[in-house]
Amino acid sequence: MQKTLTIGNLTAKIPIIQGGMGVGISLSSLAGAVAREGAIGVISAAQIGFMESDFSTNPLGANLRALKKHIAKAKNIAPGGIIGVNIMVATKNYAQYVKASIEAGIDLIISGAGLPFELPSLVKGTGTKLIPIVSSLRAAQIILKMWMKKDGVLPDAIIIEGPLAGGHLGFKEEELTRGIETSEYEEEIRKIIGYVNEFAGTHNSSIPVITAGGISTKEEYQRQFELGASGVQISTKFVPTFECDAHENFKKAYLECEKEDIIIVKSPVGMPGRAIRNKFTELVSKEKIPIKKCRDCIITCNPATTRYCITDALINAARGNMDEALIFCGAKAYEETEIRHVKDVINDFIL
């Protein structure tokens, strides 16, 4: 019998959440296509308005406008489907992105790249479901205790993002460079799930836990449920799909990369990230690229000292200018060999 994923009063017939990928990689086309198949589609709010005509002069306004547009488009693609938005805690004007998403009727908000302490108060009185991202038992403990103490609420679900995930990662750079063995991190997953279940139980509730990072085969998918997960988050495998919003050159970079091309980079966000080696990563490893214009995207970025503008680097990726782009990816991007449909990717896991 096919498993489902229930988050509050929302039930996805397929227990897969498509990970939010910015800038411009998971927008309404991908999120809508995933939700239409019965899984949960996720839009990344990161600099989502980069294609708006006034983005350079009014980035916040452009982003909030585009966010609402893409939520509406995704819901139109998947009537009755479940659509979420990923909003990084490190985002400047974080509260405004949360409120805009709620106004647009978003079903759930996923938040990582920091601990989302203020999220419950921002959605109070709405039906929007809340899903924080953690990578350690300590982070899960802090969020659960803080949310309960401050707002008297529990997360509607929790995502555990492991060391094989793409983009920004909640690990020390030396941990990622050394490499964390699957068996080693599985123990952490068990500890987090055990603690979450115990904490929820003391409040007569339950919190589904979703695991993420490097899940690329049916066997790895099924293993997550053996560990106690209620669902999985998949990102990398949705990039080389016809429905993905990414530029064709971005998808091509996944198909052409080798295992040794996938590296750990330093990000202006303050966290290490996983990306595909290219001319840009080689350049920024040696020298600083002066920032011509700051678009106030990340709280932790200091334009005077950062090695490069992450907005410019990710927009270049979204536009297909790969030599000047930061190409975020998961640890197993090199396994991808062809462009397929979202339905085919989902079927790899459930059939």
Rank of each mutant, 00 (worst) to 15 (best):
I315L: 02
T311Y: 00
I25S: 11
A35I: 01
R223L: 01
C309M: 08
G179I: 09
C329G: 09
L176Y: 11
G213Y: 07
N204D: 14
T211I: 13
G49F: 06
I192C: 10
S56W: 01
A200E: 09
T177R: 12
L169F: 00
I262Q: 10
K75Q: 13
G213F: 02
P116I: 14
T126Y: 07
C329V: 14
K73S: 09
R295G: 05
G127P: 02
I71Y: 06
K288E: 14
G20R: 04
R274S: 14
G81C: 01
L122S: 12
P116W: 11
R36M: 06
A212F: 05
E37G: 05
G330S: 07
Q2D: 04
G231D: 09
K251G: 02
Q18Y: 00
G201E: 08
I133K: 01
N316W: 03
V134M: 12
K286R: 14
T202W: 04
G170V: 13
I210P: 01
I262P: 14
G320H: 08
G330R: 07
T337C: 04
C257W: 08
G273P: 04
A35P: 02
I263A: 07
A62D: 02
N86H: 05
S136A: 13
K332G: 10
T311M: 05
D245V: 01
K279H: 00
V98D: 02
S285K: 13
I82M: 04
I17C: 05
Q224A: 06
G19L: 03
M21Q: 02
S216C: 10
S230F: 02
I327F: 03
K343D: 09
R340L: 07
I142Q: 11
